Amino acid sequence: MTYQNILSELKEQILYVTINREHKLNALNKETLAELADVIAVASQQDEVRGVLLTGAGEKAFVAGADISEFSDYNGEQGEELARKGQELVFNAIEKCPKPVVAAINGFALGGGLELAMACHIRVGADHAKLGLPETSLGLIPGYGGTQRLTQIIGKGKAIEMIATADMISAEDAEKIGLLNYVVPQSELIAKAESILNRIKLRAPLAIAAAIKSVNSAFDVEANGFEIEIKEFGLCFNTEDFKEGTRAFLEKRKPVFQGK
């Protein structure tokens, strides 16, 4: 797929994905969502990709929300289909991606933008960023997993407060409640996200994928997370990376993992 709304570049095993609609504060329209679905699918399948860094163009917005003009005249059936497709193809795909996805939140992360960030595995925010789910001020609720992921991350009481008031919160407050892993100055944002991914790159790729799958299962009501962890643990023993990791430990050297 040729991308018109996002930029994608692979450097040193990190796939840099930038939502490139700065004039629209990087709002999510249908085309952008389709491109995000494609790039995440590609990242999931390519061995040379060891992690994804997701950000927005400019310094004003990560993603300021969905493109409201596209669905302002929808009926209930169309709205449900919009949410279902978006969750399946983009937001759930990011959450289930076997490669770690780090969101570098460079400004406003509102509505679908915050939902996009919450689907990522790790979130780093610039100190001027503002986060919120303003859907109730439009007569809606979050439809891309926002009610579920926000509750999982910060707890029921805070989640209902944020959603019901539709208020934005500062990056500092978001870090305090666990919505952001780190807050740094704008000038250090990408470097901080890179430093996390560079540390992860030193570890065994198949083990990272197994860990992501196992952690996600803790929030899947239809899954037995302990059983999934046990099985993934066992499968790790069949990998070349396990053999390399244990050899390196016994030989007192750094391991060189191949993702096999």
Rank of each mutant, 00 (worst) to 15 (best):
L15M: 14
D173P: 00
A204K: 02
F233R: 12
I19H: 07
L33A: 05
E81G: 01
A166V: 05
F71T: 09
K254T: 13
A207R: 08
P205E: 05
R253A: 08
E88C: 04
G157R: 15
L116T: 08
N181I: 00
R253S: 13
V90G: 09
G65T: 03
I212M: 04
G139T: 12
G245W: 08
G132E: 10
K254M: 09
I40F: 13
L28Y: 03
K30Y: 03
E115P: 04
E161C: 01
F233N: 07
V39C: 01
K85L: 12
Q258L: 12
G107I: 07
D220C: 03
V184Y: 14
N92K: 08
V183R: 01
N238I: 05
L114Q: 02
A223W: 01
I122T: 13
N106R: 01
L10V: 10
A66F: 14
V90Q: 07
G65L: 00
L138W: 15
M1L: 12
A204G: 03
Q78P: 06
N75Y: 03
D38W: 01
F237L: 15
F226Q: 14
E175A: 13
L206D: 11
I163D: 04
T32E: 07
I228W: 04
T147M: 13
F91V: 04
F91M: 06
N198F: 15
K192A: 05
I68P: 00
S69G: 12
G225S: 11
A57I: 00
L138M: 14
F233T: 15
L197M: 06
I230G: 13
A109D: 02
G178Y: 04
S72Q: 15
N181T: 05
L53T: 09
A117G: 04
V90E: 09
N216A: 12
D67I: 00
K254S: 06
G155A: 06
M118G: 09
M118H: 05
L250E: 12
F233Q: 10
V42W: 15
A204W: 02
F108N: 11
T147N: 10
Y74V: 06
F91G: 11
I160F: 07
S72V: 11
A174E: 01
